[in-house]
Nucleic acid binder design. Structure first.
Lengths: 229, 229
DNA sequence: GCAAAAGTGTTCGCGGTACACCCATGA
DNA sequence: TCATGGGTGTACCGCGAACACTTTTGC
C-alpha cells in the first residue's frame, strides 16, 4: 500500500449533464428516459461514468457528444453530488455539468435513440435520484453567469433579432424586461453587429438581424463585465 | 454486474481544504508540510480521502476538524479537480472545499502536529500537485461571495471594530476602501450592533466595538444582497 | 384602414464615489 | 503639545428604471 493512500471501498464516479436550449419562447432542458432499472422509464439527466483515461471535463464532453452529436459546446462544471444514498444501487458520486447549446444544431436522430425530449423549465417532471436538485442548481448558476459573461448568446442561432435575444434573457431570468432599456444595455456591451438583412418571419415590418463581433465577444467572455438586467 | 454500472479501474477520491484566516492585517491561508512521499516536506493544502460512509461535505468537515479542532466552520464546495495525472502516485480526483475561520479560535497544538503554518496570500509558496490552482480558484470565489453574502464576518472575532472589518474587506478584495463610504455601506446592511464598549488597543482614543445582530445576519446570509465595494 | 410587431429618447431618482476636518488620548 | 488613529456629512454624477408614440406592411 502506498503511504497516505488508503483506498476505501468502491465508489462509482459519474457525470451528469444539464443541457439547456432555447426555442424562441422558452428555456428548455434536454432529458432522457432511462431504459434500465432502477427507475426504468423515468426521466433523467443524460449521464455516464468517468473513464480511467479521462478527466471530468472530458467525460462531460463525451457524454454531451453522445446525445447531441455536437462538439465545442459551452459547458461548465457545476457541483459534485455525493450523498451516500443518492443512488440506491451503488455508492455513486456524480459531478454535474451544465451545457448550453443552440437547439437547432443538435442531432435529432441521436435524441430519438435515447428517448430524449426537451422540456420547458416550468414543465420539468420528477427526475430520478437528485437530478431535480442538480437542475435547480444549474438554473441558478446560469442566471448568475449570464450577468457576468455573455454566454447566453450560445443559445441563439448565428443571426438573430433583438427580440429573440430579449426573449432569451427573459426566459433565463424569468422576468419581463423593458424593450428600450434592454437594447440600450446590450448595445453598450458593444459586441453585436447589426446586419442589413431583416428577419421577416416574426412581423410584417421585419426586424433587423444581428450577429456577434467574434473578436469583441471573445474578449468579454474572458474579461468579465457586469450586465444588470 | 448491475446494468449500466460498469466499474472502471480504481480512482481515489480526496478532499482538499483551503482554509482562510485573517489576522487584522492580512488574509492568510493555512498550509501543512507534507510528511510522506512524494513531495515530502513540501507545502500542501490539508486533505484526506473520502470514506465510504460519508459524503463530501462530511469529509471536508472531518478534515477541517482534524487540523483546527473547530466545528461549525463556514465552508463551501469549490470544484472537483480531476486531471488524470494531477497526482503522480495514483489516479486521484480531489474535490476542493474552502473554509473561513476565526484565526484566534483554532487549536495551536493540532497545527503544530501537522507542521501547519499560516501564509499571507502574497507569500504562498509553491504547493504540491495542483494546489496552487485550487487556492487561486478559492480566492476568486471568496471575493465574489463576500459581495453577495456577509460571510466575511466569519473571519472576525465576536467583537470587532469598524476598522478591523474594513481591513478585512480590503484584504479580501485586495484594494483600499474609503473609510466613510465603507461605514455607510455596512450600516445600510443593518446587521451590526454598536456596543458601548471600546477597543483601546489600536489607538489612544479607542474605537467602538461591534457585534452581529445574529437574527438579521442569518436572514441576509440566506436572502442574498449585493454589496458593491 | 387596421392589426401586429419594430423601432426609438427623455426624465427622474437613487446609489456610488470623492473628499477634509475635528476629536480624544497617551506618551 | 503632539502624534496617532477614530469618527463624521455633503455634493456631484452616472446608471438604472419608468414610460408612449410612430413606423411598416400584409391582410
Amino acid at each position: 500500500m502506498i503511504k497516505g493512500y488508503n483506498p476505501e471501498d468502491k465508489i462509482f464516479l459519474a457525470v451528469d449533464c444539464i443541457i439547456f436550449g432555447f426555442d424562441d419562447e422558452d428555456l428548455k432542458v434536454l432529458l432522457i428516459q432511462r431504459d434500465f432499472e432502477p427507475e426504468k422509464g423515468n426521466w433523467s439527466l443524460m449521464g455516464g461514468f468517468l473513464k480511467q483515461e479521462e478527466n471530468l471535463d472530458d467525460a462531460a464532453t463525451r457524454i454531451l457528444y453522445r446525445l447531441t452529436g455536437m462538439h465545442d459546446i459551452y459547458m461548465e462544471q457545476l457541483y459534485a453530488f455525493s450523498e451516500v444514498d443518492r443512488d440506491p444501487v451503488a455508492r455513486t458520486i456524480s459531478t454535474a455539468y451544465y451545457a448550453i447549446i443552440n437547439i437547432e444544431k443538435h442531432n435529432e436522430e441521436l435524441i430519438e435513440n435515447y428517448n430524449a425530449k426537451w422540456f420547458s423549465l416550468k414543465e420539468v417532471p420528477d427526475l430520478i435520484f437528485d437530478h431535480n436538485a442538480m437542475l435547480d442548481k444549474a438554473i441558478r448558476r446560469l442566471r448568475r453567469r449570464t450577468s457576468i459573461n455573455p454566454i447566453g448568446f450560445e443559445l441563439l442561432p448565428e443571426k438573430f433579432t433583438m427580440r429573440q435575444l430579449q426573449k432569451l434573457y427573459e426566459a433565463i431570468l424569468d422576468k419581463k424586461l423593458d424593450k428600450r432599456n434592454f437594447i440600450n444595455k446590450i448595445n453598450s456591451m458593444d459586441i453585436l453587429i447589426k446586419l442589413e438583412e431583416k428577419d421577416m418571419s416574426s412581423s410584417t415590418k421585419g426586424s433587423f438581424l444581428h450577429t456577434f463581433d467574434q473578436e469583441k465577444y471573445d474578449n468579454k467572455k474572458t474579461n468579465n463585465f457586469y450586465l444588470k438586467l
